[in-house]
Nucleic acid binder design. Structure first.
Lengths: 234, 234
DNA sequence: ACAAAAGTGTTCTCGTTACACCCATGT
DNA sequence: ACATGGGTGTAACGAGAACACTTTTGT
């Protein structure tokens, strides 16, 4: 110990895991395995180890729960109220993850007694996890208004109506379908496929794929995906 | 210790302190007092104590160095490379502060061998502080493009040309003065004063004050302060 | 035939940009 | 008088918003 006399504190990460079931935004929660608050609903988390970064810890925890690696993961912020964990002082750095809900391994999630909840009727969460979810949703809305981030929640092939319903779910709002499709197509990020999705409508909607190159290239630009952003609560 | 077997880690905060001298953006740096890297240029920082939040630690450290309280302070992100501090593993949560450069107490800063540097010719910094400054500048640019955050760097009374030169400094760019003044005045955030600043020009420029009520009310809105945001590197 | 969702075009408005001249004052 | 920076107006353009009907197909 080279900085004597300083406090050493437990450090954890917690993951706010968002998914999209085709109609609604969902949140993956687990039933906590440790005391205190054992059995209560909680975000998936874990303590950081001596030789890993926070990012690595978040990746590890996410893989444990979902079997997924390389998913979109972004640091939200650190939560540091000294009383936030009643058992022992713990600083937690929250990360939010966007995953294609169809890819995760149900088996693993079952091991953790995990469940997908609609954002609207999620259970009461332990500690400050409630706040973490609210902050994550706010940041997601903020970021998705400007950057094409929500594609991370969709499967490789998706339709414009699906995409619209995703945006509408995230902003708890409705958009004009003509303006919406024009706007997303004008970005040049979407490649039209030959096949149609015939499941969700009689007429069928064309599938699109994301142009990954353009996606990466234009990720930093301000794209203004959302109509009237100032009228929504961001 | 209620979570036995978990690693307890030193946690620090570091402050990226921005100021504006009327012409250029500056950064307040100190000469590090501790080993290792004693005497080298560094961000002001400190370890978090057992009973305070990260925010409180950042406030405390900022007060120590500048004598200022209640300044704009925002969490940037946590830096967690296990090797980032060669002496001992330390996770640091970086905060960036925007202060009115005229308010800080020179005396205190002298105690820490502190100095204001132009962003452009700042010295090499210790550890990952270089990265912290870059990330902070990027976030500042990002946020200031949408929210009226840069007023925090100005004195209570300021002129439109001063404000413009501040924005130009932050974005290392130049803007059309006619469009700029129209844009900022159209927000309704500025209250024209009777007096003029006669220091910076012969004709003199009217002072303005920030309408604090409207400032707080409209802080969340997307204001689009910057022309051609997609042409700048944000 | 009908219901249900997909797909598409036009007009209007308003914000953004580009651009150039006159004003007030200290020297 | 002149140099310096402050302050203002306008026209052209383009992005965003509002708005409704036709198409396809499963039942």
């Amino acid at each position: 110990m080279r900085y004597p006399g300083q406090a050493h504190i437990l450090t954890a990460i917690d993951c706010i895991i968002f998914g999209f079931d085709g109609n609604n935004i969902k949140l993956l929660l687990i039933q906590r395995a440790l005391k205190p608050e054992k059995g209560k609903w909680s975000l998936m988390g874990g303590f950081i180890e001596q030789t890993e970064t926070l990012e690595q810890a978040a990746d590890r925890v996410l893989k444990q729960l979902t079997g997924l690696q390389g998913v979109y993961l972004e640091q939200l912020k650190a939560f540091s109220d000294p009383q936030r964990d009643p058992a022992e002082r713990t600083i937690s750095v929250a990360y939010f993850a966007l995953i294609d809900i169809h890819n995760y391994e149900k088996q693993l999630s079952d091991d953790y007694h995990a469940e997908w909840f609609l954002l609207k009727d999620k259970p009461t969460l332990i500690f400050d996890h409630q706040q973490m979810v609210e902050d994550a949703l706010q940041k997601l809305r903020y970021k998705a208004a400007l950057h094409p981030i929500l594609f991370e929640l969709l499967p490789p092939k998706f339709t414009i109506p699906q995409l619209q319903s995703l945006y509408e779910g995230v902003y708890d709002s409705t958009f004009d379908n003509r303006n919406f499709s024009r706007k997303v197509l004008s970005t040049g990020l979407l490649i039209k496929q030959k096949e149609k999705d015939k499941v969700n409508s009689k007429k069928g909607a064309f599938y699109y794929k994301l142009d990954k190159k353009k996606y990466k290239a234009s990720f930093g630009a301000f794209l203004n995906f959302i109509p009237n952003p100032n009228k929504l609560i961001l």
